[in-house]
C-alpha cells in the first residue's frame, strides 16, 4: 500500500472554549478525490488548514510526505483593487512560467481570452478558472480546493467539476475538496468524508448517503432532495445528448428518485438554499 500524501492523526483544536476539531484522523492517498462535506461551522476549512500547516493543532500530528507539492485554491480570493494584477502575473505568483505556458493552461480551463485582463475585473466563474489554471501550472501532487464552486451558477458548477476531474487526470494528483454542493460532488468523488468537528462517517458516496449520521446531519428531507437534484442534473445531460456515466451509484439512485418524484420541485429548492447558506 502506498504511503499517504498527508495524514492527520488525532487532531484536536479548540478556539477558546469551543472545540473545533475533536480527535480527527484523515489520510489522503495519491490520486484520489476526497470531498469534505458538513454543515456551516463544522470546521471544514479549519481541518484543511490544519492539514496544510496553516493552522497549528493543539494536539495530534500531521504527517506530510516528503517533497509534497500542494496547490491551494482558497474559498474566495478577491484581489484588492489597490494591487494591479494581470491574470498572467497572477499565474506566476509563486512560481515563474513563460507566457506560452500561461496561455496553454488558460486554454485548458477555457479562459484563454483573459490573460491580459486585470484580476479584479474577472467574473466569479472566470476567477475560479484562473485559480485552476494556476494550480495546473504548479503541477502539484495534491490540489486543495475550498468550496471551489461558490458564486458560480449551476451549469458553471458542473463545468468546474469536469475541469477539476480533467486536471486530476492530467496531473495524476490527489484532490481534497470542501463542498456543500452534495448533488454534484457525489457524482465525481472517490471518497466522501462527512464532517462535523469529528469525522461522522466516510466512504464511497453511496455509502455515506445511506449512513444514519449523514442523514441526521443534513436531515432526511434534504438528503432526499439532494438525490432528486442529482437526478435532474443527470437528466439534463441526457437531453443535451451526453451519455450518462454508467457507474453503479447512478443506477442505485433510481429507487430514491422514483418514490419522491412529486416533491421534486420544492425539495430541489431546499437543496439549493442549503448550498447557498454555507
Amino acid at each position: 500500500m502506498t504511503a499517504p500524501l498527508i495524514e492527520g492523526r488525532d487532531l484536536v483544536l479548540s478556539f477558546g472554549s469551543e472545540r473545533v476539531l475533536d480527535q480527527v484522523s484523515l489520510a489522503i492517498y495519491p490520486g484520489e478525490i476526497i470531498t469534505l462535506i458538513g454543515p456551516n461551522g463544522a470546521g471544514k476549512s479549519t481541518l484543511v488548514k490544519t492539514l496544510l500547516g496553516l493552522q497549528k493543532a493543539d494536539s495530534g500530528e500531521v504527517i506530510r510526505k516528503r517533497g509534497l507539492t500542494t496547490g491551494y485554491v482558497p474559498q474566495k480570493l478577491a484581489i484588492d483593487q489597490v494591487l494591479p494584477m494581470t491574470v498572467k502575473r497572477f499565474l506566476t505568483l509563486t512560481r515563474s512560467a513563460s507566457r506560452a505556458d500561461c496561455e496553454k493552461v488558460l486554454g485548458q480551463v477555457g479562459a484563454g481570452h483573459v490573460i491580459d485582463a486585470q484580476m479584479s475585473q474577472l467574473s466569479g466563474g472566470e476567477n475560479q478558472r484562473v485559480m485552476l489554471a494556476r494550480a495546473l501550472l504548479l503541477r502539484p501532487n495534491l490540489l486543495v480546493l475550498d468550496e471551489p464552486t461558490q458564486g458560480v451558477d449551476v451549469s458553471g458548477q458542473a463545468e468546474l467539476y469536469r475541469l477539476i476531474d480533467e486536471i486530476r487526470a492530467e496531473l495524476d494528483c490527489a484532490v481534497l475538496m470542501i463542498s456543500h454542493d452534495l448533488h454534484l460532488v457525489m457524482a465525481k468523488t472517490d471518497q466522501v468524508v462527512c464532517f462535523n468537528r469529528h469525522v461522522c462517517c466516510h466512504g464511497q458516496p453511496e455509502t455515506v448517503r445511506q449512513h444514519p449520521e449523514y442523514r441526521s446531519l443534513f436531515g432526511s428531507r434534504e438528503a432526499d432532495a439532494i438525490g432528486i437534484y442529482h437526478h435532474q442534473h443527470d437528466h439534463e445531460h441526457d437531453l443535451s445528448g451526453h451519455v450518462v456515466d454508467g457507474c453503479g451509484h447512478d443506477h442505485s439512485h433510481a429507487h430514491g428518485q422514483s418514490h419522491s418524484h412529486d416533491h421534486a420541485g420544492d425539495h430541489g429548492k431546499t437543496a439549493k438554499e442549503a448550498a447557498g447558506t454555507n
Binding site: 480570493l77 494591487l83 494584477m85
Partner: peptide, 19 residues
C-alpha cells in the same frame, strides 16, 4: 519579491505553497 507579493495577495496560498 515574489514570495512577499504572494503573501500580500493571499497569506493562505503563500503558506499552503511553502512560503
Amino acid at each position: 519579491w515574489r514570495p512577499l507579493l504572494a503573501l500580500t495577495v493571499s497569506p493562505e496560498i503563500a503558506a499552503a505553497e511553502s512560503i
